[in-house]
Design a protein around this nucleic acid. Structure first.
Lengths: 234, 234
DNA sequence: ACCTGAACACCGTTCAAGT
DNA sequence: ACCTGAACACCGTTCAAGT
């Protein structure tokens, strides 16, 4: 206002792009948003770059490649894991709670299961999760080697469950579609030739029960925990 | 030779491409070869078409899309499954044998596990496999609902194991690389702060044992079978 | 040191046009 | 009915060139 208009103005580079510089942090943030909003398939180097208003090549100064970005996403998701204090009296129930919590986190980041499968969990939070599962297993007197392999089996089962769900979710079926599909499936099983498929026909109803996934998952963790309990000492 | 050279010759279209016509069968054959020789990533519509000396668009007259081709590949692999006659006396060992056979087939078709995950197994051979597992489980007096969910859990575990292996194989590590990595991993675990990670440090050796995968898989099927046995009636 | 545009070698799928 | 070429809208990664 009070600046005389004919005074020469040095326009302090107004066109300069004051964009925040790129960083691993910002890249993971952007990738995580894409993952949550649009699933794993949407997390491409190009789309992440676009979300950050830059080109795909720019990401490679901060992230080695797509695989490393996947690992960073798994680490980020692992931060949401929660574990109660280990309680030796109820180690079996605690093991189940840990697995339920793990599935919950993976469900809240659809697609992270695909990135997690086959990864050795070495992030800080992943290590804490391993430590916690070991503590629970040892409280239950599970032998060392069995406990060690169990902390491999447990994430494998939970991740596989979450991955399977995410694959099926990618087909974009509605609740109705699923109900109809399950019904048709039951009829298909029932209609099979009984001489050749006696058990499949007889158990058609049981085979198609628990479509939502929760009951099947509960069954799975019950089998695993009971199996581990059978190996416990004393 | 004995044909007079100035006689008008109708050259019966020698340039006509006598190529065998496309068919589902031939497409699956070509895709399976690619899968076996170069892994799942190599099975693209374009590469399959190229192997058949045609363009990608030609495949769509016989196969709806890539997903359907994946299903056909799983069906094809399932034909290699073998099951012994069900023997009630040794149902637990038979269950394990069935799982071992399943893993063996999946290992011989690297990449088929990725195509199989999340699929409801409805091919003829897949149905026979379900029927056979049900027969073994019922011979072991596992309740109906548990048996039904078990035939979901079993393929999930085997497929996840095979998929995990195929992901790791895709990194193209040599035997030496793996040995070195496992050694470094053990040292890494041992070097963690013992106040924060007491069990991880103490069990470092056990955590890194059985890198080949066979021992880990044997442990997994032992846990699952023991868990199912704990649910058996009587 | 960090960022960029352009290029390379790929994808799955569609469609109008041919036979 | 079956097949084709060409196109569309994508991939991950590399590299020389800029600042």
């Amino acid at each position: 206002m009070n600046q005389s208009p004919w005074q020469p103005i040095r326009p302090e580079k107004p066109a300069r792009p004051v964009r925040e510089p790129l960083s691993r942090e910002r890249i993971v943030d952007a990738a995580m948003s894409l993952l949550v909003e649009q699933g794993y398939e949407a997390v491409s180097m190009r789309k992440v770059a676009q979300a950050l208003n830059t080109g795909p090549a720019s990401l490679y100064a901060h992230v080695a490649n797509k695989k490393e970005l996947d690992q960073l996403l798994v680490d980020r998701a692992a931060q949401d894991l929660e574990f109660p204090e280990a309680d030796p009296e109820h180690w079996q129930e605690q093991l189940k709670d840990g697995m339920r919590s793990m599935l919950k986190v993976m469900r809240s980041y659809p697609g992270v299961a695909r990135a997690a499968i086959g990864q050795v969990p070495l992030g800080e939070r992943a290590l804490e999760s391993t430590e916690h599962f070991l503590a629970i297993l040892k409280a239950g007197k599970v032998p060392d080697q069995a406990a060690a392999w169990a902390v491999d089996l447990i994430p494998l089962y939970v991740t596989a469950t979450a991955f399977e769900e995410s694959v099926q979710r990618a087909w974009e079926w509605t609740e109705d579609d699923i109900t109809r599909f399950v019904g048709e499936l039951r009829e298909f099983f029932q209609g099979l030739p009984a001489e050749k498929f006696p058990f499949t026909v007889a158990l058609a109803a049981a085979l198609t029960a628990g479509g939502s996934g929760d009951e099947r998952f509960e069954f799975g963790i019950q089998v695993i925990v009971a199996g581990l309990a059978s190996m416990a000492e004393k």
